[in-house]
Design a protein around this nucleic acid. Sequence first.
DNA 1: ACCTGAACACCGTTCAAGT
DNA 2: ACCTGAACACCGTTCAAGT
Lengths: 185, 185
Amino acid sequence: MPRPAARRADARHNRELILEAADAAFRRDGVRASLAEIARTCGIAIGTLYKHFSTREALLEALIHDQVAGLREHAERRTGSDTPYEALIEWLQEFGRCASAYQGLAESILSAAVTDGSDMHAAVQCMRTAAGSLLTEAQRSGAIRLDVTPAEVFALACGAGTASRYTTTDPDRLLRLVVDGLAPR
Amino acid sequence: MPRPAARRADARHNRELILEAADAAFRRDGVRASLAEIARTCGIAIGTLYKHFSTREALLEALIHDQVAGLREHAERRTGSDTPYEALIEWLQEFGRCASAYQGLAESILSAAVTDGSDMHAAVQCMRTAAGSLLTEAQRSGAIRLDVTPAEVFALACGAGTASRYTTTDPDRLLRLVVDGLAPR
DNA sequence: ACCTGAACACCGTTCAAGT
DNA sequence: ACCTGAACACCGTTCAAGT
């Protein structure tokens, strides 16, 4: 009797529905989009949404999970590059693109980096670690000041991502301006 | 009969009450703090709050109005300085302090700079203008790239302000790192 | 002139009850 | 195992009615 399996498939389907609708809503309205409306869009009860994702942060974390994995891969691929400064900038630009997918996401990521018990904390640590090795290499190459910390670079990249949502300037240029500031004087 | 005058004094008093309570609430909960709770704190009806400030943005604008005036004065005082780079940085640091008084204020300011009909638009334009002359002088002195626009500097300063809320790093240092990136290569 | 507060339409979140 | 939706406590905003 494959009934239980079919049941689970149904739940998995609902999960996918929620993720799809949430992604659209967050893109449109930012990370504070209405969860009730998302559930309505899916045609499911609000309780079902909460069953799958017990907090808004858990939902956000699920949505960016794959991108975090991609960012880690990206960083690993570029580790040991002979142009570590460019490798760092390009990784940060990629990160900036992800972090500004939803309005308010950069702030959620930053605050998850700070508050230890949060749902997104682990995912954010991955990002930080990935960025950390690229930063160290760029520092060893002499392109980046030795006195800037990974946390500072991370925070500045998020700040640039936020700022880019309110300017006509190319986000990549904004980030490059910031990172240029990290060169030794 | 000084009755109408007394009446107006009452209204003025309510206005002050609202501003005080709103400042406390925004400092604690950010710019999205509950207006209902603010009214309750004042002991006034919610309709009265709306009568005085028809939008949240109008309330925010009233709260930062004096600081905007101060920032303009500050910029005027430093215009023609013989150390224009330091003058710019110090102005931006002062601005950063104001813009990060409430969580989300930097974003409100940025979006007011973009959306023309907003309540805060005029106030923000003052800030931009004040910053603009300092930026131009710093550029003429050779300390800042000629290709960065006031809008970009403004956006980056807001971004640094936001980021500083989630880091242990000194906000002034964060902003200086950013502005250092605006030096000619 | 100014203030009141009920009214409306919306949320987030939980939890007993259903299948 | 999973889903439902009523229930609760809260909002933002408006507007007729009061003084």
